[in-house]
């Protein structure tokens, strides 16, 4: 197992949670289902990723000290997670009370979700000692990658899912950005003489998901789940390789 497995979990699950809200900020959320499911799922992902982040620390008890240094990568991620989590919690409370989501709250959660993705990218961009991380490609990896990860989850919470042409467009764009991010990392790692197989595998799986998004006009359940698996597995393989230092 990779030594930074906690970071892998943090960016994968936290990124999925943040990416989902970032996408839903520009879409119309379903109001016919149980509205609380989305914030509950997002919070579960965020809590698991948060505990994973504690696992990254040798002395977890001192984690709160990080909040005194918001300009550092971990501090930025900490504040990003807290603020994003706060708005997801507000969304949960509103959904529980009014039985439907509030769009302004969704947009605010989406904005802070995007900020969390930027924080993740920044945390690796500033790592000068690891050449394959300390460059602008890390922003693409975590911002575009997070948005791509948000697609399969967001599909369950948008009116008509992939049957919604606006969502299909947004989803296809987000997954395309995910493919671009993996190809950029492929170039960065390859340029340093490191293995790029995982990025290519991830890019191919996401490219298949991209095609399925475009053809899933009838929002077939099996295609929706297939897209879910392809995007999550594809991004997980690529991220796992990213952390193999």
């Amino acid at each position: 197992m990779i030594s930074e497995f906690p970071l892998f979990l943090f960016t994968l699950l936290g990124g999925m949670s943040a990416g989902t809200y970032a996408l839903l900020a520009v879409l119309k959320r379903r109001e016919d289902g149980d509205a609380v499911i989305l914030p509950v799922v997002a919070l579960i992902l965020l809590v698991i990723s948060g505990f994973a982040l504690f696992g990254h620390l040798g002395r977890p008890a001192g984690a709160l000290q990080v909040m005194g240094h918001p300009t550092t990568g971990i501090g930025f991620e900490g504040y990003g997670s807290l603020l994003f989590g706060l708005f997801v919690l507000i969304d949960l409370i509103i959904c529980a009370a009014k039985k439907k989501p509030n769009h302004v709250v969704t947009v605010l959660a989406g904005i802070f979700g995007l900020i969390l993705l930027v924080a993740m990218g920044y945390a690796y961009y500033e790592v000068m000692g690891i050449e394959q991380w300390g460059n602008a490609a890390s922003f693409a990896m975590f911002i575009f990658g997070g948005l791509a990860l948000g697609v399969p989850l967001a599909a369950f919470f948008v009116e008509e899912g992939y049957g919604n042409s606006r969502f299909r467009l947004v989803a296809a764009l987000a997954i395309a950005l995910g493919v671009i991010a993996l190809l950029i990392e492929n170039g960065v790692f390859g340029g340093l003489g490191l293995s790029t197989n995982a990025f290519m595998i991830g890019a191919v799986l996401l490219a298949i998901a991209f095609v399925l998004v475009l053809v899933n006009r009838k929002n077939a359940v099996w295609i929706t789940w297939l897209i879910f698996v392809l995007v999550v597995v594809g991004m997980a393989i690529a991220r796992y390789s990213f952390y193999m230092i």
Binding site: L57, G58, V66
Partner: peptide, 27 residues
């Protein structure tokens, strides 16, 4: 005493000069 063992310093240092003590969980 302030170190929380996140290893950020090790990863950021071009020479990886700081060293992590697994038994103590600190650098």
């Amino acid at each position: 005493e302030k170190c929380i063992g996140c290893k950020s310093c090790i990863m950021a240092c071009p020479f990886h000069a700081p060293t992590f003590d697994e038994s103590e969980g600190a650098t």
